[in-house]
Nucleic acid binder design. Structure first.
Lengths: 344, 344
DNA sequence: ACCGCCTGTCGAAGCGCTTCGACGAACCCA
DNA sequence: TGGGTTCGTCGAAGCGCTTCGACAGGCGGT
């Protein structure tokens, strides 16, 4: 591996000149620059990342902490991750992948050992134990999510509360009055997952504002969980005409079971999903949905990190406005209320 | 951030002694070691990764290259990734996440700049253009997959050829003679994806050995793709009694359509899937399947990398034997052949 | 008592880069 | 014509760690 000294010798300049050609931090004449670049190309020189980090206190690496759990939505995570990597690369940064199960210790490890310049943390909980630790780090952090006390930390996410409101407004506009939320699994609520909570809060609030009769129910994604969930909803909210599904994995079994029970979507019951676009489209019937724009959120997280790294100002909290796309799973409720088939 | 010198001063020893306490490369008396460790703990010292990399030529980071594409199986990729991260952590290594779309350039970038000690590459193709470049790197590489010419590179994967044989053997034992393979999407074959190819080859070979009447058909995962695929199969292989599905995303629509056409599984038609365990279990009926053991393969890849890094011997190619698990989607074919319902 | 050998510790060199201050040369304006 | 700038380059100091050779002291064997 050639070093910067080799390049300098080959180009007949000093190592510092090579460095300045590389970084552009001082003016270098066109001829010299050309000679240096030729030497770099010829020798196949790549600066040593460790040496660079040592001398400059910059690694050009950001950490990405992803949940390892299976009860969170795997494809969405993957979308975030690839969005983050892709965006980071456009800023000349790489991504170090950490799993949430290393907890606070993992964050401190990579931060204290100066492996990364900044951190992006996913799957944030309401009272996330990692947050105090993150505040103490010298590296800036961006959360994808929104904890109860975000003071001192930058957060970006989809505005899930607004998404819930938008959804209910849409259904109400269609004439629905009795609406149930099929939420994520109980485990997700139990650990206070930020997005689940915010959607729920927005749902409840909008329900009151719009004067709707609603209920909310968590849902295990497997067939059984969905069955139970639907039965509970039918029992508690007679004549429900619309379902809001904030649970990507339950979506398919739910549609299956509605069909099995002879309830047509959207004629007998409307369904609005909160999920990525491709999931909404891959269902047997294209679903009216609020998009989860993983790509945008991931990109925004990276942009924000870059801003922080070069000291530019940034909003502490950025919540992307939701977009509801009408497709084919939502219609006005049947006139004859109470005529809805029940799941046996 | 305290440095090794701060620790040395606090413990009343020289920096090299601290280093030896940390690395264990030279004997240190129990008292000294205790003093040093106390100082480390008290100061909250973490060695600077860049400095370490510079001095030792080791980064304790391995690169993981994942496909970015959407036509590959996202959850499986994620399983691999988390398995790799988890396993790497047990060996005190971190994982740098790269996407395949950076191609050869990305690999060379991280390797030449000494960001990583080794590379693990997923989504390998038959004639993968990255392989010549990988051979030239000074860092060892482990492929998850098996290219046509694996010379000089270590490969680990599930033995997909054996998986195909196992599957056909199982179906033949049940009495099936007319069997179709529903494969991955045409795009996957077109770019010569290693696992798709090997499964196909194993399938064809075993079919001949067992004297079966079989056909193979790629399948786009959406509803339409599955419909076409099933229609083609029915047209070409009259009275087919079993389907081998090597396409996780097509699985669900395929089962839907069989049901819609009134073909019961397993009474009218048997289905054997090649997919992760949890996918097989999450279907409306638990599927007999050959497991894709992402966790094991990912773990094995990391173990192999570690062996290479400390110069231990390792087999150039390790293919894990497949495990077929009987569940409920496979039975003997109906006696009255030709009585199978057709998809309209 | 002597030599050779471990054991435990230290000092210093160096890993490859960035960056700061210095400095000659060229330039502009008075 | 000279003083102040700006431009382009160099040298050297370090960033924080590992590792090698050296060496003092204690051991056992003869």
């Amino acid at each position: 591996m050639p070093t910067i000294n080799d390049v300098a010798r080959a180009a007949g300049v000093s190592p510092s000149t090579v460095s300045y050609v590389l970084s552009g931090r001082r003016p270098i004449s066109a001829q010299t620059r050309a000679r240096v670049q030729a030497a770099i190309a010829e020798l196949g020189f790549h600066p040593h990342a460790g040496a660079r980090a040592l001398a400059s206190s910059k690694t050009n690496v950001v950490a990405l902490v992803v949940p390892l759990r299976v009860d969170v939505n795997v494809p969405v995570i993957m979308q975030f991750a690839t969005a983050v990597v892709t965006a980071a690369r456009t800023h000349n940064h790489d991504v170090l992948l950490l799993t949430k199960d290393e907890g606070t210790a993992g964050l401190e490890r990579v931060a204290h050992s100066t492996m990364v310049d900044a951190l992006i943390v996913m799957d944030v909980e309401k009272h996330d134990v990692r947050i105090p630790a993150l505040r103490r780090l010298k590296q800036p952090t961006v959360l994808i999510g929104l904890p109860d006390d975000p003071a001192g930390i930058i957060c970006v996410d989809l505005d899930f509360a607004a998404a819930a409101k938008e959804t209910l407004r849409h259904l109400a506009w269609h004439g629905h009055r009795r609406i149930a939320l099929v939420g994520p699994s109980p485990a997700v609520y139990r650990r206070g997952t930020s997005y689940a909570d915010r959607f729920l809060a927005g749902f409840t609030e909008a329900s009151a504002e719009l004067g709707l009769e609603t209920m909310t129910h968590p849902c295990e994604p497997a067939q059984d969980g969905v069955r139970t969930c639907l039965a509970d909803i039918d029992a508690a909210l007679d004549g429900v005409t619309a379902l809001v599904v904030h649970n990507e994995e339950a979506l398919r079994p739910l549609l299956d079971q509605l069909r099995a029970a002879g309830r047509r979507v959207p004629e007998d019951i409307s369904v609005v999903a909160v999920c990525p676009r491709d999931v909404a489209l891959s269902m047997p019937i294209p679903l009216t949905s609020v998009d989860i724009p993983s790509h945008d959120v991931g990109g925004l997280a990276v942009e924000t990190v870059m801003k922080l790294l070069d000291g530019r100002h940034t909003e502490p909290i950025r919540l992307l406005p939701p977009t509801l796309v009408e497709r084919e799973s939502c219609a006005a409720p049947a006139r004859s209320t109470g005529e809805v088939f029940k799941i046996s």
